[in-house]
Amino acid sequence: MARMKFLCDSERCIECNGCVTACKQEHEVPWGVNRRRVVTMNDGVAGAEKSLSVACMHCTDAPCMSVCPVDCFYTTSEGVVLHDKDPCIGCGYCFYACPFGAPQFPQDGAFGMRGKMDKCTFCAGGPEADNSAEEFQKYGRNRLSEGKLPACAEMCSTKALLGGDADEVSNIFRDRVMNRDGKGAGVFGWATAYGKGDAKPSAQEKVTPKVEAKP
């Protein structure tokens, strides 16, 4: 069966934060919880600025799973890492362990006490009955059971964020790479790997980026 994955193309992401907004709107996530966020690297440096959208990456060997003291995580048959909010004790260990900072904790009461953990579900809901009111209230919409892909990926204006079966996603990306750099050596990215010279000049090379001093 499929193994669901996200992929973000750093060449295409324009930091519009549309995915962040779509996610918030689709799932009506509580205040202070950010299931998805866009991070811009080298912000303001000409020619070096790259943006990436990040959420739960649905690891095959998820660290959150192994540290959870009540074992609330599970992987679905589609390879989506989900969790059951009922047993969650809000200890924050999954947040310590996660490389991507995906688990979020709504503040519950005074002194920064953590509530039940909330994270990206790949729009696959939770263990409650699919598309039920309880499921929506706890985990947000279950688009996967409606035959749809995550809202963030589907609405991405530049198609920088791709979501879906890993095979399909990699096919799309392969198509993209093949078309990106033209023909011949450019197809397998000669210039990207070894520098300009032998390869046919690509579209990117014609634009000479200005290198500015750091602000």
């Binding site: 690297m41 000409a46 020619g47 070096a48 210039a191 990207t192 520098g195 990117q204 290198v211």
Partner: peptide, 15 residues
Amino acid sequence: GAQQQAQRQQTQPGN
């Protein structure tokens, strides 16, 4: 890293 990336973009576009 920023400086390096800006230079890399010229010598090895897409890298």
